[in-house]
């Protein structure tokens, strides 16, 4: 986990604004984080918090016409926001790859599985014919597909949801990317399959010493498979810490509320779910102060008027949160 040297990906003050008919929608609003090789960063947040917009901004697949992006995305020393489009195309798929939420939609329904893998191999590695086929079988084997040879000639609809996601992962890993962005990779799958897919991603990541960004709305998923976690709310990171530290003593009331709202097996039957009341703010006109303020139990005047900055809490400075009235940390560090 402790990898010497520069981070592989460093995002600084990134903002992505969508042009909508109602005005600018601040989907991502001043986000900074970094990921090292071999490390997994989890990004959690509820729907609409800007997680997917963040992922799509990093690989620049949002429509240029409808978005404005500012800030810096440094990947291996290059700023991805200033790289030319042809260079960016070479980076996509080869250096940074992405796994999407729903494999039913992310695989082309009218093309055989093998063809879809081989196209990527041809595009980035120049592999064709026999060589490409051999590599495709290797890839399918590495993602745990039984009978990979036969799978090459099957269509996505002939596979189960979990198998489809394995194919999507095989495609993403085809060129052994340095960074894998998994955007809710298990949300569309059965619970029983989720753990298998996450295990698979984890194993592949370790095998290739790859960096991974795991986006999820499920704290449980993030808890088990990440080294560090960033909690996103309304386009901003509100708390950032090592996974251990975040789950031990979260400071931001939003994180705390998220954790409380997960149903717990030790609850007595018929316990009401502790949902967070209210809804995320309108991102065209976000509240001037803390964005969680309208839904926060501890909010005061200062929360309404001034935005809290992301500040370090712990002695080592890796646990950072943005809140005027942080939740008391039980295991308070000296």
């Amino acid at each position: 986990m402790m990898d010497a040297g520069l981070p592989l990906l460093e995002v600084t003050d990134l903002a992505t604004h969508f042009h909508t008919q109602r005005g600018l929608l601040r989907a991502v609003d001043g986000v900074s984080f970094s990921v090292r090789r071999g490390q997994t960063l989890g990004i959690v947040g509820e729907s609409g918090s800007g997680k997917s917009a963040l992922a799509r901004t990093i690989i620049r697949i949002l429509s240029k016409r409808h978005t404005t992006t500012t800030g810096r995305i440094t990947f291996e020393g290059r700023d991805l926001l200033t790289v030319s489009e042809p260079d960016m195309r070479d980076i996509r798929g080869r250096d940074i790859a992405m796994v999407f939420q729903d494999p039913t939609s992310s695989l082309n329904p009218v093309k055989q599985v093998g063809v879809q893998i081989e196209e990527v191999l041809a595009r980035h590695l120049g592999l064709r014919g026999r060589a490409a086929q051999t590599r495709a079988i290797e890839l399918l084997t590495s993602v745990g597909m039984p009978l990979p040879q036969e799978r090459l000639h099957q269509y996505p609809h002939q596979l189960s949801g979990g198998m489809r996601q394995r194919v999507a992962i095989a495609i993403a890993l085809a060129c052994e990317p340095k960074l894998l962005i998994a955007d809710e990779p298990t949300t569309a799958l059965d619970v029983t399959i989720q753990a298998q897919i996450l295990d698979l991603l984890h194993r592949r990541q370790k095998a290739h010493h790859m960096a991974m960004i795991l986006i999820s709305h499920d704290l449980g998923v993030v808890a088990g498979y990440t080294d560090t976690v960033a909690v996103m709310y309304a386009g901003q990171i509100v708390e950032q810490a090592s996974t251990r530290s975040l789950f031990r003593n979260c400071r931001m009331p939003y994180t705390a509320a998220l954790m409380r709202s997960a149903p717990n097996l030790s609850d007595p039957p018929h316990t009401r779910l502790r949902a967070i009341t209210g809804r995320p703010p309108d991102m065209v006109l976000p509240p001037p102060g803390c964005r969680f303020e309208p839904r926060c139990d501890d909010a005061t005047d200062i929360c309404r008027n001034r935005r809290p900055a992301l500040s370090a809490s712990d002695a080592d400075g890796t646990h950072r949160y943005a809140c005027w009235h942080p939740v008391a940390s039980p295991g308070a560090s000296a």
């Binding site: 799509r56 690989i59 697949i61 195309r89 070479d90 980076i91 996509r92 798929g93 080869r94 790859a97 992405m98 999407f100 939420q101 729903d102 939609s105 992310s106 695989l107 082309n108 329904p109 990527v120 595009r123 980035h124 999507a168 495609i171 993403a172």
Partner: peptide, 17 residues
């Protein structure tokens, strides 16, 4: 609208591709 278009773009495909 399907993600396979986005996925292809994310794997480095040009608009023409």
């Amino acid at each position: 609208q399907h993600d396979f278009v986005l996925a292809a773009r994310a794997m480095g495909a040009t608009h023409w591709r």
